[in-house]
């Protein structure tokens, strides 16, 4: 299984890394981070201009069980899983991508 996990991580792109990173930070600060926030941040980071790509990124991470979506009220909020935390840790240790600030989280300061 370790081999599969490594391979899954190898195929993650910057947008997956950023979503994991922002989701973890949101949870750390007890802020609810939903799909719309994720789309806005990816757009501001210049990663994508379409909501479909943001949705596809979130769906991929969900399918890999790196994040989970919880329907809270009429919002779909995102939370990192333990597998997602391991994945993020590996990506950080590899220095594969540089973190970028989430405009949504910055605005909550």
């Amino acid at each position: 299984m370790d081999g599969l996990f490594q391979e899954q991580i190898d195929h993650l792109a910057e947008r997956h890394f950023l979503v994991l990173y922002w989701v973890a930070h949101a949870e750390d600060r007890r802020i609810r981070y939903n799909l719309t926030n994720c789309f806005d941040d990816l757009k501001l980071a210049g990663i994508t201009r379409t909501k479909q790509t943001a949705l596809a990124t979130v769906e991929a991470l969900t399918a890999l069980r790196f994040i989970e979506i919880r329907e809270q009220g009429n919002r779909k909020n995102l939370y990192i899983t333990q597998h997602g935390a391991e994945a993020l840790k590996l990506l950080v240790l590899r220095g594969a991508f540089s973190p970028r600030k989430s405009a949504f989280l910055e605005a909550q300061l």
Partner: peptide, 26 residues
Amino acid sequence: ETKRVGKEKGATEEDVLAVLQRIGKL
């Protein structure tokens, strides 16, 4: 250089790992 840029942006690898530990996922 990646670490330096990350540090400039306020997020070193230690910071990220600390976040993950705080939320109990590691």
